[in-house]
Amino acid sequence: MSKTRPEFDFFLENFADQFSEAEAGSIQGNTRFRDLEEWSSMQALVVNLSFDDLYGLTLTTDDYLSAQTVVDLYQLIIKKLA
C-alpha cells in the first residue's frame, strides 16, 4: 500500500485495469467514466477496492457524483492523500 503521491500514469493504468472489456488505451484522463459501458454501481465498488489497495483510501458516493472524468477522480485521490 502506497501513501505517497501517485503518478497519474500509474493511477490511469490501475483505473483502466478494472475495466476488462475496454480496449487498451481507450480510457484516458479526459474519459467521462460514467459513459463507459462497464460503469455501474458494482463497478464503483471494484474501482474503490483498487484505490484501497493502492492508496489506503476510497472515494465516497458524493465524490463520484462530483466528478466527471478520470482526471477528476485522480484529483480527488490527490486531495485526500494531501
Binding site: 464503483a44 465498488l45 484501497d52 476510497t58 472515494l59
Partner: peptide, 12 residues
C-alpha cells in the same frame, strides 16, 4: 442504502 458508502465503512 448508499452501497458504496457502506462498502467504504466496512473496508475501513
Amino acid at each position: 442504502m448508499q452501497g458504496l458508502d457502506v462498502f467504504n465503512f466496512a473496508l475501513r
